[in-house]
Simulated assay, not measured.
Amino acid sequence: MDRHPVTILRKLAALCVCGGLLAGCDLPRTGPSLSEIEAGSTANGGNVHIVSVDDRVTQASRKNEALGFSSELVNSYATVTDLIRAGDTLSITVWENVDNGLLASVGQKVTLLQEIQVDQSGQIFMPYAGRLLADGKSPEQLRQMITESLDLQTPDPQVEVRRLAGDGSSVTIVGGVGAQGVYPIEPSTKKLTSMIARAGGVVLPPETAQIKIRRGGATSSIWLQDLYDNPRTDIPLRSNDYIIVEEDRRTFTALGATGQQVVPFKIRDLSVAEALAQLGGLNGATADPTGIFIFRMEPPAVANRVLGRSDITTPQRFAYVVDLTKPSGIFLARDFLIRDDDTIYVTEAPFAQFEKVLRATVTTINFAALVQTVTPN
């Protein structure tokens, strides 16, 4: 047996050439091939329903994910903004018709009592009138109470009561607005849109902005655009409402010949075509347009509709296939909607794998030629 080192190197080079030609499947890949995915279908004993997308499947796979305020919020009545509540701040002005009044300084007839806080029991303290219950009263009702109390001690007092901004009837706004904070419910800000405007407006892209209202332990959401388009959703606000303005948090995952990344939704209703456009389109050198897969878990109701069955009671794994080379492929890609947590996988074109084999083979041949050149016979 010839054990010369040069002979051994030449034989190894020859084996590498054959291995590169015959074992292309062992080369690096972006993921499984179209045929390998199809081999795992339920039709072949697997646990994934592989469904080719057509018009019927596009409609059957639709799932109602629309946002909207609850009927309780939409049908709620407008709050009475001029009632005084615990936590409110009041301004009280008293005019007296005598030179030496009860409240005014010497030579003055007007007394201004600013920032009188309504305590947690709903009461205020008014000099010479004592403690008065203000909670649930309008400024006019409280004015009459103070006037009657002072009238016994100073002739014909004139009283003015104004309700200032306070925490008693207020809402909290956080998130994507110009100025987050706590805002009083006033006559001009009784509705949701006016309160958002009071907080500086929405600073997020309108295509993906959502408005969330938390009231009494329940939460409802709506798309900003729907709020603008439908006046009925411009709900009246309540004290202690918590308003959150946030961007759409849905994402999908891209794998395969498009690269690997988690991608946020840029628009509300995102189709396969628009998702691919967000990824920069298909790479003509590597992507297989016949093998675009959308992987997702379908609830039983959707799974039954898509498969034309009625016996499915548990969530099912689905792999929807879009073939862009078919005459209707582009239209189907435009109509089939992506959902939150979907995975888009674009298979690699057969030619791309062949090209990898070819590159590996050329590299091996060049290595063998180098061995032949640098070693003596």
Rank of each mutant, 00 (worst) to 15 (best):
V263F: 00
A349D: 11
S271T: 08
T343M: 13
A303M: 00
S194N: 05
E115M: 14
G176C: 00
T364G: 11
P205Y: 00
R317S: 12
V346C: 07
V159Y: 03
K63A: 12
R339K: 12
A134K: 06
N304D: 01
G46L: 06
Y183L: 08
M126C: 06
V6G: 06
L337C: 01
C25H: 15
D88Y: 04
N47E: 14
V171A: 11
G178Y: 02
Q210F: 01
E186Q: 14
N366L: 15
R238E: 12
T147P: 06
P205D: 12
I37V: 13
Q120R: 13
L113Q: 14
A254W: 06
P206D: 11
Y228P: 04
E348V: 01
D151R: 04
V174M: 12
I222S: 04
T347F: 01
A319Q: 10
I292H: 02
H4E: 08
A287L: 01
T147S: 14
E38M: 14
E355Q: 15
H4T: 07
A66I: 07
Q108R: 15
G20I: 00
V374N: 10
Q261I: 10
R215Y: 04
D241Y: 11
R162V: 15
L224H: 07
K63F: 14
G166C: 05
I196V: 10
T58E: 08
G200V: 08
G46V: 07
I196W: 01
L276Y: 02
D82S: 08
I146P: 06
D323E: 07
N240K: 15
G176A: 13
A78P: 10
D2W: 08
L358R: 12
D26Q: 12
R339P: 01
D248W: 01
K356S: 04
I213M: 02
A129F: 04
N304L: 00
G291K: 03
Q120W: 09
V182M: 04
D156R: 11
I213C: 01
G178N: 00
T286R: 11
A352P: 03
L113M: 15
P206E: 11
A273M: 13
L34Y: 15
V106A: 15
V182T: 09
S61G: 03
E96I: 05
Q59S: 13
G122D: 00
P289M: 05
A369V: 13
R10C: 06
P139W: 10
G31Q: 02
P155I: 04
M145C: 01
D82W: 09
Q117P: 12
D341C: 09
P127V: 00
L27I: 03
D167Q: 07
V272A: 10
L27Q: 04
G175Q: 03
D54E: 04
N240L: 03
R309D: 03
V371L: 05
S41G: 06
D167F: 11
L34A: 12
Q353N: 14
L307M: 03
S170F: 00
L307V: 05
K191A: 12
I292W: 09
T81D: 09
A273I: 11
V322T: 11
D26L: 15
G101H: 00
R3Q: 05
R85E: 05
P28S: 05
Y128D: 01
R62E: 13
A257N: 03
G136F: 06
A39H: 06
V110Y: 09
I235T: 07
S71V: 12
G217A: 13
Q316L: 07
Q260F: 14
